Computed example of a mutant assay.
Amino acid sequence: MRGTILAVLALLTLAACGGGDRGLRQLDNPGGGPDEFSILPARPLEMPETVSTLPQPTPGGTNRTDPNPLGDGIAALGGNQAAGRAGGIPAADAGLIGAVNRYGTDPAIRETLAAEDEAFRRRRGRLSAFGMGRVDRYFAAYAGMALDAYAEFIRFRNLGVQVPSAPPAN
C-alpha cells in the first residue's frame, strides 16, 4: 500500500514538472520557427460612398486594402498618411528629424538590441534553472523594464502636459 502511494506521488510529481509551449514567455531561444510579428493581416474591404471615387486599377501596384504600417502609424500620430508613401521626409519635419539625429543613428540598432535581449534572457534563464520545475519567469525577468502607463499619465498630468482622459486605475 505504501509503495503504491509513493509510486502515485512520484508519478504526479513528474507530471507536474512537464511544461508545454511557453511562447513569448519562454526565456531561451526556441529555435528557428516562423516569426509571428512578420505577418500583417490585410485590411477589410471598403465600399466607397460613390462609384466615381474608385481608383483606377494598377496591375502590379498596390491597392487600398494592402497593409501600410508606416502610413497607419503616421495617421495614428495625427499626420498625413500619404507621407508614408512619399518616399522622403516632408520639409515640415526637417526640424524634428534634425533633433532626433543630433547624436547620430546606429544602422544596426535592431541587431544590437536583439543580441542584448538574447544575452539578458540567457542570464535570466540560467538563474531560474535552480528552481523546482519550470516556472513562468517572463514578467519577473522584464519587470524592471516595464512602463507603468498610468503612472506616466499622472506624471505628465502633474507636469501640466495636456493628456487625453484615461480610465481609472484598477
Score class of each variant (00 low, 15 high):
residue 43 R to I: 00
residue 44 P to C: 02
residue 45 L to T: 09
residue 46 E to N: 03
residue 46 E to A: 10
residue 46 E to P: 00
residue 46 E to W: 00
residue 46 E to F: 02
residue 47 M to E: 09
residue 47 M to K: 12
residue 48 P to C: 05
residue 48 P to D: 06
residue 48 P to F: 04
residue 48 P to R: 09
residue 48 P to Y: 06
residue 49 E to N: 09
residue 49 E to G: 11
residue 49 E to Q: 11
residue 49 E to K: 12
residue 49 E to M: 09
residue 49 E to F: 04
residue 49 E to R: 12
residue 50 T to F: 06
residue 50 T to W: 03
residue 50 T to K: 11
residue 51 V to W: 02
residue 51 V to C: 01
residue 51 V to F: 05
residue 51 V to P: 00
residue 51 V to A: 13
residue 52 S to F: 07
residue 52 S to Y: 06
residue 52 S to Q: 15
residue 52 S to R: 11
residue 53 T to R: 13
residue 53 T to E: 15
residue 53 T to C: 12
residue 53 T to I: 13
residue 53 T to Y: 04
residue 54 L to P: 01
residue 54 L to T: 14
residue 54 L to D: 09
residue 54 L to F: 04
residue 55 P to W: 05
residue 55 P to K: 14
residue 55 P to M: 10
residue 55 P to F: 04
residue 55 P to Y: 05
residue 55 P to D: 10
residue 56 Q to W: 04
residue 57 P to V: 09
residue 57 P to K: 05
residue 57 P to N: 08
residue 57 P to Y: 01
residue 58 T to C: 08
residue 59 P to K: 04
residue 59 P to W: 03
residue 59 P to Y: 05
residue 60 G to H: 01
residue 60 G to P: 00
residue 60 G to D: 02
residue 60 G to A: 02
residue 60 G to F: 00
residue 60 G to Y: 00
residue 61 G to N: 02
residue 61 G to W: 00
residue 61 G to K: 01
residue 61 G to Q: 02
residue 61 G to H: 02
residue 62 T to D: 03
residue 63 N to F: 00
residue 63 N to L: 00
residue 63 N to E: 09
residue 63 N to A: 04
residue 64 R to W: 03
residue 64 R to H: 04
residue 64 R to A: 11
residue 64 R to E: 11
residue 65 T to S: 06
residue 66 D to F: 00
residue 66 D to H: 03
residue 67 P to G: 09
residue 67 P to I: 07
residue 67 P to H: 08
residue 67 P to C: 08
residue 67 P to E: 12
residue 67 P to L: 08
residue 68 N to K: 14
residue 68 N to L: 06
residue 69 P to T: 08
residue 69 P to I: 07
residue 69 P to W: 05
residue 70 L to N: 05
residue 70 L to C: 06
residue 70 L to I: 14
residue 71 G to A: 13
residue 71 G to T: 07
residue 71 G to I: 08
residue 73 G to W: 04
residue 73 G to P: 01
residue 73 G to M: 13
residue 74 I to P: 01
residue 74 I to Q: 05
residue 74 I to A: 06
residue 75 A to K: 13
residue 75 A to C: 03
residue 75 A to I: 06
residue 75 A to P: 00
residue 75 A to T: 11
residue 76 A to T: 11
residue 77 L to F: 07
residue 77 L to R: 10
residue 77 L to M: 15
residue 78 G to E: 10
residue 78 G to D: 08
residue 78 G to P: 04
residue 78 G to T: 10
residue 79 G to V: 10
residue 79 G to Y: 04
residue 79 G to M: 10
residue 79 G to A: 11
residue 80 N to M: 11
residue 80 N to T: 13
residue 80 N to V: 13
residue 80 N to W: 02
residue 81 Q to A: 15
residue 81 Q to C: 07
residue 82 A to C: 12
residue 83 A to K: 07
residue 83 A to M: 13
residue 83 A to I: 09
residue 84 G to R: 14
residue 84 G to K: 14
residue 84 G to H: 14
residue 84 G to D: 14
residue 85 R to D: 15
residue 85 R to Y: 11
residue 86 A to H: 08
residue 86 A to Q: 15
residue 87 G to E: 08
residue 87 G to A: 08
residue 87 G to P: 04
residue 87 G to W: 04
residue 88 G to H: 12
residue 88 G to F: 06
residue 88 G to P: 00
residue 88 G to S: 14
residue 88 G to N: 13
residue 89 I to P: 01
